[in-house]
Design a protein around this nucleic acid. Structure first.
Length: 587
RNA sequence: GGACCGGUAGUUCAGUUCUGGUUAGAACGCCGCCCUGUCACGGCGGAGGUCGCGGGUUCGAGCCCCGUCCGGUCCGCCA
């Protein structure tokens, strides 16, 4: 008899006979009657084994959790008073007529029970068991649905899905490459692609005006809870477009996902210029649910005698900001926050407690008050609008340190003081990025990637690269960057100029990117695109803490696979074939 | 490369500092017996430990010290 999926069984079918197959989730043996909770991929139903059929009953007594069974049973309405309202099938039960044990199971190494929380180590080692948990089933179903929505929508809008190579050549810029030794050309290596960037640009040159791909990318960098060495992007590129069209298509994709999966509607996403984001939040991916803002107070200390503020106040690369919260913070907490900002290079965390905002003489409390003039304090009070109960934190240092530490503190305070609505989703576009980033030593690197177009053109690029604005944009959601893209350079001269500003000379550019530079000489349409980090997006969509919970077989923080024990040592034969000699590290 | 948290029964944890001391506990799971309406079933009984690993201090170490491995969070890194 044909198998029926559990969720197809309904109260309309009372007295019908069904065959179901699935795992035993729970056994409740009452001696005279046995209840089995059977789960398949669609749902869960209670099976009752009654004692009348002695052979069946005896066999059923041997059934344990996680056995795989096929059960033929008759559907019955549960007797009065035994209905389980917390179950979709709670009014029904299947009276067992026949049981086939398809597979037995040892006791599981950890309980899949919703009431027991297994640690990540054991979950990852036995990932195939962890995947049986309804939460993981749900996460991966949503992931599949997201892929489906994206493909449908993009194909409907005449995008073409094209696969690009994963084995490519190593790139000098960007993240570390994962290398693949070539057997046929010893001493040579492929690299796993960090992103299909150049290939998709060459697809534009190749005349595919609307491309997309759901693609795995590889970067050999350290992991975080939202980063692992292999990850999935939705990659999009279009020709003959501008920023507006890309942002519009992107928004419609994201809105479609949230509409279809969470039934949430969104207005147009707010747009924030990079400079404003840095001013207000110290970050280019602020959590917009958090109402706190950084307030610039540098001007107040132009003539200060307090060295900690006076030095940054005079230095154009420095910044002084205040972060005000309307709550009293314990001394202990302040120590904790001081330590916290220390992680980001801050040398300390000055603060002022406001007890009485009308009495700036005696109503304030802080170890730095004695260094501040009456005028400075009065200006602070005006600018920051002191009121009783406020605590104000200050960051004063090189602007990178201030931005890093104070934006992190802003996020931490937002969480600690519960200023953030965890149920909310707040999107934003960050636009007008600088084309280059300057590190603390003054070196330039691309803030997006070296193929990004600027809106000033080649002349302004030459004159004033540091202030060049990129035609780039990031999509942020709840403090995560979930997408980013740009309009690209479609002109050889401009591309060469960028390389030269980055310190890549003509010879090197030719050697590493010659194939692409040549492609630019054969009629390259204006084009641009965007890529979304699907793991992150789905993590947020599923309200998970880590992308590991939306990846079927994820890597650990140290980039290993606990299930298959990768990476592993390689046999000498295999190494010989690749002409690779392993140098053992001194121990 | 660096900082911090954790590692004790199959699992989740307590015990670990201030204060080292007889036989290392609990819950769930597992095994046995009992139980005809449970649904995180219940009752009685039982088994189960390299206290991550190595070294040191000590009469004595799960506990103190050093090193190391594993998991996690973060900094650096991630164009």
């Amino acid at each position: 008899m044909k198998r029926t999926l559990i969720h197809k069984i309904s109260s309309k079918d009372i007295n019908s006979t069904f065959t179901i197959s699935g795992w035993v989730e729970k056994v409740r043996d009452h001696g005279g009657v046995i209840f089995l909770d059977i789960r398949d991929s669609s749902g869960l139903i209670q099976v009752v084994v009654e004692p009348e059929d002695q052979e069946l009953f005896k066999k059923s007594e041997s059934i344990r959790m996680s056995y795989v069974l096929e059960i033929i049973g008759e559907l019955r309405k549960r007797p009065e008073g035994t209905i389980n309202k917390s179950l979709p099938s709670g009014e029904l039960e299947l009276i067992s007529k026949k049981v086939n044990i398809l597979s037995i199971s040892k006791p599981l190494p950890f309980q899949l029970d919703e009431h027991a929380n297994a640690g990540e180590e054991v979950r990852l080692k036995y990932r195939y068991l962890d995947l049986r948990r309804p939460e993981m089933q749900e996460n991966l179903k949503i992931r599949s649905e997201v892929n489906h929505i994206l493909r449908n929508k993009l194909v409907d809008e005449d995008f073409i899905e094209i696969e690009t190579p994963m084995m490519a050549r190593a790139t000098p810029e960007g993240a570390r490459d994962f290398l693949i030794p070539s057997r046929l050309y010893n001493q040579k290596f492929y690299a796993l692609t960090q992103s299909p960037q150049l290939f998709k640009q060459m697809l534009m040159i190749g005349g595919f005006e609307k491309y997309f791909q759901i693609v795995r990318c590889f970067r050999d960098e350290d992991t975080r809870k939202d980063r692992q060495p292999e990850f999935t992007q939705l990659d999009i590129e279009l020709s003959f477009i501008d920023e507006e069209q890309i942002l519009k298509i992107s928004e419609s994709l994201i809105k479609a996902i949230f509409q279809k999966i969470l039934k949430l509607e969104f207005k147009d996403f707010q747009r924030i210029k990079y400079q404003d984001a840095i001013m207000d939040y110290g970050s280019d991916k602020p959590d917009l649910r958090n109402p706190l803002k950084l307030i610039d107070v540098k001007d107040i200390f132009k003539n200060s005698t307090f060295k900690v503020f006076a030095d940054p106040a005079k230095n154009e690369k420095s910044r002084i900001v205040a972060l005000k919260i309307n709550q009293e913070i314990s001394r202990n907490k302040i120590d904790e926050y001081t330590k916290f900002v220390g992680n980001f290079g801050a040398k300390g965390l000055a603060y002022i407690k406001v007890n009485d905002s009308n009495d700036l003489d005696k109503g304030l409390q802080s170890p730095i008050l004695k260094f501040l003039s009456t005028e400075e304090i009065s200006n602070l009070s005006k600018t920051l609008d002191f009121s009783a109960g406020d605590t104000v934190f200050f960051g004063a240092d090189h602007r990178n340190i201030v931005n890093d530490s104070m934006s992190a503190l802003r996020e931490k305070l937002g969480h600690d003081l519960q200023l953030i609505d965890q149920e909310e989703y707040k999107f934003g576009w960050i636009t007008d990025f600088p084309l280059f980033e300057e590190d603390i030593k003054g070196n330039l690197s691309p803030s997006h990637h070296p193929f990004t177009a600027t809106n000033g053109g080649i002349d302004s690029l030459k004159k004033d690269p540091i202030n060049a604005i990129a035609r780039a944009y990031d999509l942020i959601l709840n403090g995560s960057e979930i997408g980013g893209g740009s309009l690209r350079i479609n002109n050889l001269q401009e591309q060469l100029e960028i390389f030269s500003i980055l310190g890549i000379n003509k010879k090197e550019a030719q050697e590493k990117f010659g194939f692409f530079l040549e492609a630019l000489t054969y009629g390259c349409p204006p084009h641009g695109g965007i890529a979304f980090g699907l793991d992150r997006l789905i993590m947020l969509l599923c309200k998970q803490e880590s992308i590991r919970d939306v990846i079927a077989f994820p890597k650990t923080q140290s980039a290993t696979c606990l299930l298959s024990d990768a990476p592993s040592l390689i046999d000498q034969d295999q190494l010989d074939m690749l002409s690779i000699k392993v140098i053992e590290e001194d121990s």
